[in-house]
């Protein structure tokens, strides 16, 4: 039993990070109907920013959580302005390709400037772990699971009740209509990217002590975030959170009880099954009306 609990805790830890990553992807998709394949690179930059604050400048840890989201958000908004805005009239195909290669360009730029395999970042809490019937849980793990999920829920509430959240939802359902209601497309799109970038940055700060900062982080985050988003239903915020947790836990369980060498296959299998049998996701926000 203790063993199963350990596996579940580890799954929840990565699942919470996946959820946060997926949430940012879904926010951008909900408002702009584009999937940002550079999202993983934003998370990597967030983790790097955490390294700078905590290790390089030796500032207090909480500053990484405060400074990183707006910083990465601004980077994302800038990229929206420079690259995505000129492509707004292009089809989905073009946008996907642009963001795929944007992600590579950002990762490479990071690698070139900080020529190293991995930057290690310490955890925020280093105290003794909690022990309960042979189940160990470090303060760090507890913080990642609880902190990431609290932030996820806060984002959902912001989106549901904030003015810009309403604007984004309006924009997603009907661009013309939203414009008539006084929402500016440019401003809403830019804000969506800002919010998506900020959440990627936060995911980066959470993941930095768990994975370190490396180029591989960007691929790990985007693929997990995307799969989590698809599982949840790509337009559903609560779906992204549940999808992330489900992905983390099932990866962990499969690796523990099926085969560790095939761990990466599990997420792909899950993605495939959901896309084929329930393309609207397991937790869709609204029931799509087939007309």
């Amino acid at each position: 039993m203790a063993e199963l609990a350990l596996v579940l805790i580890a799954g929840a830890k990565f699942g919470a990070i996946y959820a946060l990553a997926a949430l940012g992807l879904v926010v951008v998709h909900k408002a702009t109907k584009t999937v940002n394949f550079a999202h993983g690179a934003f998370a990597m930059l967030g983790a790097f920013s955490s390294y700078l604050v905590v290790v390089h400048w030796q500032w207090p840890y909480w500053m990484a959580y405060v400074l990183t989201p707006p910083l990465i958000g601004v980077v994302a908004a800038l990229i929206e302005f420079l690259i995505l805005r000129p492509l707004r009239r292009a089809d989905m195909f073009t946008v996907v390709i642009a963001t795929v290669f944007l992600g590579i360009a950002l990762s490479e730029a990071f690698r070139l400037t900080y020529n190293t395999e991995l930057l290690a970042v310490p955890g925020m809490f280093v105290g003794m772990p909690f022990v309960f019937h042979g189940v160990f849980m470090t303060q760090e793990t507890l913080w990642v699971i609880a902190g990431a999920l609290v932030i996820c829920v806060a984002c959902v509430l912001l989106f549901r009740y904030g003015r810009l959240g309403r604007g984004m939802r309006a924009m997603a359902s009907n661009v013309r209509g939203a414009q008539l209601c006084g929402y500016s497309v440019d401003r809403v799109y830019m804000f969506a990217w800002f919010l998506g970038g900020a959440m990627a940055g936060l995911a980066g700060v959470f993941v930095a002590p768990v994975s370190g900062v490396s180029v591989e982080l960007s691929i790990a985050i985007i693929s997990a975030g995307f799969v989590a988003g698809v599982i949840g239903g790509f337009d559903s915020l609560k779906g992204a959170i549940l999808g992330g947790l489900l992905l983390g836990v099932s990866e962990s369980l499969a690796a523990a009880y099926v085969s560790s060498a095939l761990k990466n296959c599990i997420s792909f299998l899950l993605l495939f099954v959901v896309l084929m049998w329930r393309p609207e996701g397991l937790f869709p926000e609204t029931v799509a009306r087939r007309v």
């Binding site: 063993e3 596996v7 790990a220 990866e251 690796a255 523990a256 761990k263």
Partner: peptide
């Protein structure tokens, strides 16, 4: 484990 793996819980368990 796969290259660049970061979660070894299942193997360690």
């Amino acid at each position: 484990f796969d290259q660049s793996a970061r979660d070894f819980t299942s193997q360690l368990v």
